[in-house]
Structure formats: C-alpha cells, structure tokens
Design a protein around this nucleic acid. Structure first.
Length: 554
RNA sequence: GCGCCUGUAGCUCAGUUGGAUAGAGCAACGGCCUUCUAAGCCGUAGGUCAGAGGUUCGAACCCUCUCAGGCGUGCCA
C-alpha cells in the first residue's frame, strides 16, 4: 500500500516538473508515514517540507501544488489534505483497503512474506552453550530469539541455516571431565572434597552413575588423565544430547552442529592464524601472538596464542568465522548473551581482517532474563548449580507461552519472565489473548456451519464491509507485510508479538460490536466470514513465524 | 578509569529510524453476558520522555555534558 502510494506521489511530482508548476527538478526521498491520529488520514508525507529549500517556496504552497496534481489521479486516493506545517494527508479509498482481503485469501500462508532477501545465504548461529550443563532460562531466550530471527529472515526471502557451535575444546571440558571423575569416585565409596570450581549440578552425578553402569570401576585406579578424558567425552556427549532434546521440546531444531574441536582436527586454527600473520594482522610480543584488533576500534589487541603455546578461545573464533564465510554464507549472524558485548569490536575486526565488510557479521545481543513467580524474583545462582533450566520452564508453562514471553521484549532490554503470569489463562496473559482470538474465529466458522451457513466466497460483496470495525481490522491486516519485513531486517521479533496483540485486540473489539452470522443478511455474513478468515490467516502466519501454535479450539 | 547497554504513566514495556495532541498491557476505579467462546469488550484516571545545554521549521529519537542502574574491561571460555 505504502509502495503504491509512493509511486503515485513520485509520478505526481514529476508531473509538476513537466508542466512547470514546480521547477527544481529534485525529488527527495519520499517518506511516508502512518499518522498517529486518524483525522490526519491513513498516510502522510512530508515531501513538500523537504522540497521547500530547493523550490524556494513555502512548504504549504508546494503541498497545494502536489495535491492539485494528485487529486483524482489514482483509484487509491480518496481524499487529500494539506495540513500543519506542510504535510500532505492521504485518505485511502475503502475499496482499495478491501483488496487486501483478496490478497490474503489468494496467498494464504504466504501472505506477508517478501523477497527482499533475494535468496542471499545467511547463517544464524545461536545458543551455542558449552556442553557442560543443561540449558538454563537465559539460553532459552537466546534460542527463541535466534530461531525467530532465522524464520523471520526466511520469510523475508533469505536462504537461512541455523547452526549451533559446540565449545568442546577448551579448559571447561577438562573441568567437566574432572567433575565427572570425582563424582564417580565418590559414588564408588571414596571420600571426596568436591572442588568449588567444578560443576556442582546433580546432572554430573547422573553421568557418574551412567559410567559405573557402563565401565564399572575401570577408572577408579586408572591414571587421572585417562579418567578426565573419558568423563569429558561421556559427559559432553550426554549433555549435548540433552541440550538437543530440550531444544526440540522447545520447538527449536538446528540445521547444523559445528564442533570447535573439529577446527583443530582439521588444522583450521593454525591456517587461520597463518592467514592473519601473512596479512600482518598478527604480531608477536612477550612470547605470545597478538591480533591487531585495535586497527578496528577495539580497546586493546588480543592474544591468539598464549606464551605457553596454547591457543585462546579467540583463535578458535577466528578460524570458525573464517570457515563460515568459506562455506559460502553472504551474511553471518551471531546471537550472544549481552555479557559478551565486549567481544563485538574484536570479532568485527576479524571479519574485516578476512576481507569482509564489518556488516557481513551481524551480532544480536540478548539481555538477561529475570525469573519471577507472581512478581517475586526466583533466586538463581549458576555457581551453586541451583539455576532454573529451560526444560523446567517449558514443562511448567508450555512451549507457546515460553516462546511468546521470551520474544515479547526487545532483545537488548532485560526481560522479566513471570512463571505464574505465563501460565494464567486470562487476558493478563498476552499469549492466550492472541491465541484466543484465533480459536474464537475458528469457533465462529464452526457455528456458521452448524447453522447452515456454509462459507461461500464466490460472489462476495466486500463493499458491505463498511463499519468502522470492519475497516479497522482490514487496515491492521494490510500492515502485516511491512511489519514482518521490518522485524526481519532489524532482527526484532518483538515487533511481531506487539503486532499480534494489536491485531487480536482489534478483532476482540470487532467481535464485541459486530455480528458475523446474521440470518437475515447472508451477504454481509459471507463478507464478514471472509474478513475473519483473513484475520485468522494472518494471526496464524504471525504466530507460526515465531514458532507458536494457533489453536483451533480453546 | 575506559567502553557498551539502559533510563518513557504506580509496574512491565512499545514508539514505524527527525514529524502533528507521546501509546499499550497490568494494577486502580466505573460499566457490559436470554445474542457467533466473558480466556472477551467499553469507559475514567494516570507524563518535567532521568537532568541541562545544543543542532532545525520540528527532538523521546541526532550531538555534548551530568546523574542513576546493569554489563564488560584475562596470555579464561
């Protein structure tokens, strides 16, 4: 709708140049916005104000000229006004709005999707939690965000792959192995002082028990290194498997799992370091190798290989991101916890060092989640192992509510997640509010059928949809495509949750004011059924893109 | 110290990338079910957009400074 209008205005201005009513010949970028107040029309543009300088005329005068040119020139525009300091207000004809409904019916689940992505290859990497413990609620927000962004980008026409990076190569794996080994020895009767820096959670004991079942006491008296290696492998595999299951229960299915260790096995870490050395981006000092991240705006250079010869996590990251681009991705997106924000400059530096643009790497920072129960904070401490896991949350509130709540806020603002609110089945709870709208519509169709009013959209009289409520709903529906696209390219799934609440609200208002099944007015009934079918389609499309179900009945 | 993020109604948050009289939900108060799902709707009230300057026709949004909170600042991951 906006685009059509934009083309219209452009044609009008060019027309003015052609007949001499305007003279500068310079057309500014035409901004079209949706005014905050209905009396300012469906859309408004400030082109006249933008042209004022070049034209050497008062904005309102320019606006008048354009309005004269435009009036009657399009079947889109019903009424035009010059207002305020020089705005042009556009009132779109109702008939033009109603065309959205036909479009929705025609496109169905495709409605809202676009092709801006043009098939560009994008990778979204998210969660990527260390395989040293189960996913907690913070990972849940990252998972919901990454998954939603991936599916938004897909809807915007990108070719998207979802990847999980497994940090299976650092110190933490030794710690995991040691934790397992100690619990194992403890279970076999040894008295153990369990170190504070080991993983405290009970899942470690489960791993130890599993080991006893598998290998008995084989590692009781074996050299410690062997035991640590064994438990690192066993624990890592089991925990990773559990993570995959938890994610699947949450509705998240990764396309690819990438092992950090494989970078070493395939020699990709040294070759990446060599490339950077050859480019002069890595230098030696104090026996260590440093990457010149300060060339790219970082506070200080960063160590890649320590003086003891061991590579850092950063070295793996260089190799990993180099590998991503070598796999042919045009655009690489990382979803991180906001506590990693300090890594942004150095990784942007790496990407540029690889000969890419800084923007070829997109980074989404996901802020902390505070868990509440009826407004009271739930105590959480990762150190003691008393964290709340994603699985516990999903089991308690359900997948749909959990996903919706995680996506309700901008990812870089902190999130309060109230378990009791998420479970509540009332208007307080936005998930149910939205889903209820969908179920309600389906229920109306059910009732219509029972009463012998079979939907028949072959001879529609859409002009009967003329009430304020009818049109408000239609206008809200026609907004969906641009909302979807904006949410995708800005990595902002919360725009969809807000839109859903607005659309559901518009529907509930409609419902309380308008009747759909009216025996004495079959044509209006059919038109309204057609309208509601469109509402249900858009509700479902938007819920689906967030990975949330649209129930038929509640 | 330096860097990043945040500061909008009592609470939780939006604000279409600089537009017209700053919005929604919750909480509060008052109404609406013999009618297609009350898991719903309507109304009332609520604001120094942290503060101070600046940029311009126009600022919650851009620039500078100040204040408050969070995070980061390792040859850990």
């Amino acid at each position: 709708m906006k685009e059509q209008l934009r083309a219209c205005i452009l044609k009008g201005i060019e027309g003015c140049f052609a007949d001499g009513t305007l003279s500068s010949g310079v057309v500014p970028a035409i901004a079209i916005e949706k005014p905050a107040h209905a009396e300012h029309g469906d859309f408004a543009s400030n082109v006249a104000m933008q042209m004022a300088k070049q034209e050497r005329k008062a904005p309102r005068a320019i606006a008048e000229i354009i309005v004269n040119k435009l009036s009657g020139s399009s079947e889109l525009i019903g009424k035009l006004e010059v207002a305020g300091p020089g705005f042009i207000n556009f009132f779109i004809k109702d008939s033009a709005w109603r065309k959205t409904l036909a479009l929705i019916a025609e496109q169905g689940s495709e409605f809202g999707k676009s092709t801006v992505g043009a098939g560009k290859k994008v990778q979204v990497e998210f969660v990527s939690a260390n395989p040293t413990g189960p996913l907690h609620i913070g990972h849940g927000r990252g998972a919901a965000t990454g998954d939603a962004v991936a599916s938004l980008l897909k809807a915007a026409g990108f070719d998207v792959q979802k990847e999980y990076y497994i940090n299976d190569a650092g110190n933490q794996m030794n710690t995991l192995g040691l934790s397992g080994l100690l619990r194992y020895r403890e279970l076999l009767g040894e008295k153990i002082e369990f170190p504070e820096n080991c993983y405290q959670g009970d899942y470690i004991k489960d791993i130890a028990r599993d080991a006893i079942a598998k290998v008995g006491d084989r590692y009781l008296n074996a050299p410690q290194e062997e035991g640590v290696a064994y438990f690192a492998k066993l624990g890592g595999d089991q925990i990773l498997h559990g993570i995959d299951l938890d994610l699947r229960d949450f509705g998240v299915v990764l396309d690819h799992w990438f092992s950090e260790q494989s970078l070493f096995d395939d020699g990709k870490v040294p070759s990446a370091i060599k490339e950077m050395q050859d480019k002069g981006l890595i230098y030696e000092q104090d026996g260590a190798l440093w990457f010149r991240t300060t060339d790219y705006g970082d506070d200080k250079d960063r160590v890649v290989v320590r003086s003891n010869g061991v590579t850092t996590y950063f070295a793996s990251d260089i190799a990993y991101h180099r590998d991503k681009f070598e796999r042919g991705f045009d655009w690489v997106i990382d979803v991180w916890g906001a506590d990693h924000h300090g890594y942004v400059p150095r990784l942007k530096g790496v990407v540029q060092g690889l000969g890419r643009k800084a923007d070829d790497l997109g980074i989404i920072l996901v802020q902390l989640v505070s868990l509440l129960r009826d407004g009271v904070p739930v105590a959480m401490s990762t150190r003691s192992g008393e964290f709340v896991t994603l699985k516990e949350v999903v089991d308690e509130v359900g997948r749909d509510a959990a996903r919706f709540f995680f996506l309700m806020r901008r990812s870089d603002s902190q999130l309060d997640f109230d378990l009791e609110l998420a479970k509540r089945q009332s208007a307080d709870n936005p998930v149910y509010y939205v889903q209820y709208a969908h179920a309600r519509i389906r229920s109306i169709f059910e009732t219509a059928r029972e009463r012998g009013l079979a939907p028949d959209f072959s001879a529609l009289k859409l002009e009967l949809l003329e009430s304020a409520e009818d049109l408000a709903l239609i206008k809200k529906l026609s907004l969906y495509p641009e909302i979807l696209e904006g949410a995708a390219v800005n990595f902002e799934p919360h725009r969809i949750t807000y839109y859903l609440q607005e659309l559901a609200g518009e529907f509930h208002s409609f419902y309380n004011k308008s009747r759909v099944i009216i025996p004495e007015e079959p044509q209006l009934s059919q038109a309204r059924l057609f309208l509601l079918d469109g509402v249900a389609t858009v509700l479902k499309n938007a819920l689906t893109v967030l990975g949330i179900s649209a129930p038929e009945r509640m």
